[in-house]
Amino acid sequence: MSSKLGKKRLFISPMHLLWAIVFGGLFFAILPAISGHESIRSERVGESLLVQAPAQSGAPNAVTAVVVWFRGLDTLGEVSVLFLVAAALGMILGRGKNSTEPESKPNEIVAHAKTLVLPHFMLTGLYITIHGHLTPGGGFQGGVMAAGMALLLILAGDRVKHLHALHFLEGLVGSLYALVAISGIWFAGSFLGNLIPIKTEAFGTLFSAGIIPVLYIFIGIKVGTEIISIYDNFQRREEA
């Protein structure tokens, strides 16, 4: 096949290397302006975020405060993009029948170890999701880890039987996210406003960050169900 296509095009001409060098020189010329090492540190956005994050959101983890509190609308859009991809995958790949038995026998070790490993996946995902405002992690990571449980079951030969329940859970959680965000307009004065009061005296405990853990649980469930449905769509086979 490759003989018909002619000889290999590996490194084509010295001009390309020259362009790479020119591009690299331009890159390093403008890099200090982008990275802002010359700007005064107290004028950077990150510094004021660090100052405002504990007082406004009550979360010790500044990254979580930015993702869920300052940029909560963006996160809603991001979860919507994931939902769009899952829906598009269902349209592209979901034509085939979901075969109930796998075409090859699953690995013996996987089939026996799944009951042993399964609770640990769930517990780790749940812990990382709930403690997203205290420790590194959050809804995305915990949701993917908890969905790893379902991916392991699919690898071990099981199939998703109640796909409608999965889609219903996904839609319900997405609607709850939007509902909590909109009800913030009435009860707290702004979109995604803090319905639950922040306890500043209990800074760094589990119930101190207002609606951030609630929103992160919603995000975790939504991301997990979407990843299960994406992977399940990849496992479908076209009917011959």
């Binding site: 510094e47 660090l50 010790p60 990254v63």
Partner: peptide, 23 residues
């Protein structure tokens, strides 16, 4: 950037690129 004390906010790395790259 995980604050131990809400009054001490200097000496941490910039949390904004972390949040963007997470997305």
């Amino acid at each position: 950037p995980i604050l131990a004390d809400p009054t001490v906010t200097s000496g941490y790395v910039d949390p904004l690129p972390h949040a963007m790259i997470l997305t």
